[in-house]
Amino acid sequence: MSTQTISKSNTWKGGNSPFNVSYGKLMMWIFLLSDAFTFSSLLIGYGAIRYSFPSTPIEQIEELELSFAENVQAKFANGADAHHGEFFIPALRDAGVFSESQWPSPDLVFNHFPFAHGLHLPLIFVSLMTLILILSSVTMVLGVEAGQRGDKNGVTKWMFWTIVGGFAFLGCQAWEWTNFITAGATPWANPYGPPTFAALFFLVTGFHGFHVFSGVVLNIVIFINNINGTYERRGHYEMVEKVGLYWHFVDLVWVFVFTFFYLI
């Protein structure tokens, strides 16, 4: 190995790290930038296609929300579930709320919550998913912080909770998909409106979900390596930081998927 002394006066003349980060971390940042481009192209496409269809008129949604309240009372009166199953989608198709020519309001598509059958609860479940992912991002960054102090047990503890958060999010995603699929949605058919809606939903949340899955796998690798003392022997916990960057990026993408699919 060369031992010549190189002047540090010029940042870009070699012999040092111009960005003051390790090679691996710099490459992770560049990968994340390219991955951000991929997700952006999907969301830009979603935005353009979504607004090439007219929105569901707000009066229709408000009218329906009143009738949901009555349906809940009807459900408890005769034991029938007026919101789910055979009643809901055909009735709204007949009323012209769900049609091929207008974009369905996410209010009326993703309005379920576990253990609350028949209740109209738009946005609540997906807000819970957002909370889970933000929390798992916090536990990740606490793990990184423990690594910076060289606290091996701290890293183990926080990585464990990060993995739990990742699985919780994936479980929620699976539940959301199951509801949508059992209603009759496929990548080429959508009982709620234009098939493009379902195609884009499966494409974008699927692509994001696969990123979450990969992130959980990487987190488990880090968790096991840390228990085995790999980073303690190496003298630094930078691998936790690099995988942490990926995990935060997945959280960041979810912020925008949430914005585009559920709010806009």
């Binding site: 003051n20 940042w29 930038l33 830009i44 979504r50 607004y51 090439s52």
Partner: peptide, 30 residues
Amino acid sequence: EKLSLATMIILPMFFIIFFLVWMMYEGNFW
């Protein structure tokens, strides 16, 4: 991090945000 690294990563995203809003508006006229 150093400003040079932050600039390299964040600057391209400004164009993306602009493009997001632009294409959403543009879709209205398809």
